[in-house]
Amino acid sequence: MKKTCLTFAIAFFALAAQAQYCNTEKGTALLYISSDRQANETRIDTTLISAVRTQDRKTLVEQTLCNPKTRGKDSIFDDNSTIKFAYGTDKTTERIIIDENWGVETMQTLQKELAPQEKGMPFDPEELERTAGNHKGAITIPLRKDITEGEKIPSGKFTIKASFMKAGLEVSKGRYEGFEKVTVPAGAFNCLKVSYKLRKNILYLPRTVYVTQWYAEGIGLVKEETADKKGYLKQSKTLLRIISPE
């Protein structure tokens, strides 16, 4: 009986691990070929699984970009600097676009970078501490195996105001496109395909893009395409290689 229960438990946890649409092995490196047609640039980006921890019955995973030169002001709220996932007991992997804690950290970084450029508005940590709480909302993309093709993805909105800074992010018109086999340099994967409209308003400069992403179990993002309103491809990202920690 004990042997049977043990076998069942092992099978259960193995199945649960396979349902994760992210990599949970700390130290793993995911290499991507990133192409930017506007800048006429192609580069290799390395994303490292930098943190894996358990909180509130969820596994939280953080991936950090290892290419410092690609971190610019335009990367604020972009997924090319940091990627976060949360995997819970309901077997749903949440791709966290932005949450309240992360939003405050981002605003602190943005204000610190730009404050010296604002005449008469030097960086004041105490002022930021008082005003950084003016934020609301969170945006996540739920990734599940039991989706129905054409099913809508919940919309989300996040806004934050700190001192003279104001920023907002909104995801809408999201849908699950079903499952699709995708072949990239790292191999062939059966992926969950999602699409959504992403609108950013940073420093009162709105920008809208249309995002399509492919996620594989146990790996995470395999492919991504970003287009404008007319459908013209602006940026793309494909998985080149997976390097496990030694």
Rank of each mutant, 00 (worst) to 15 (best):
L169H: 06
K26P: 03
S75L: 04
W214E: 03
T159W: 03
E225N: 11
L203E: 08
K234M: 14
F123E: 02
R241L: 13
T24G: 03
T92F: 02
P206Q: 07
I147W: 07
I147S: 06
A162M: 11
T7W: 13
T7N: 12
D45M: 11
T89K: 10
G187N: 05
A115L: 05
A14P: 01
S236I: 07
R53Q: 11
G218N: 03
L65V: 08
T54R: 13
T109A: 13
D36A: 01
V194D: 01
Q213N: 11
L221F: 04
L203D: 08
E118D: 08
G103L: 06
F8V: 14
Q38D: 08
V184E: 06
A39M: 10
I49F: 05
N101T: 11
K237L: 15
H135K: 14
K230F: 10
R95F: 13
T109C: 06
H135P: 00
D56M: 12
N67Y: 07
I242S: 04
I243D: 14
M107W: 02
E94D: 10
I242Q: 08
I49Q: 05
K136S: 08
I44Q: 15
I96F: 02
E62K: 09
I97W: 04
Y215G: 01
Y176F: 14
A138C: 00
T70I: 10
I139D: 01
A51R: 15
S34G: 06
L110H: 11
D74Y: 09
L114W: 08
Y32I: 03
Y176E: 04
L128K: 01
F85Q: 00
T131V: 02
G178Q: 09
K161V: 07
P245Q: 12
K237V: 12
F158T: 00
E118W: 14
P206V: 05
D56H: 14
V104N: 00
K145C: 05
A188Q: 14
L128R: 03
V182A: 07
N134F: 05
L198H: 06
R144S: 06
P185W: 06
Q213L: 02
I202L: 13
T89Q: 07
T148E: 14
K26N: 05
D79I: 04
D124S: 08
T46F: 07
G178Y: 06
A132H: 04
M107N: 03
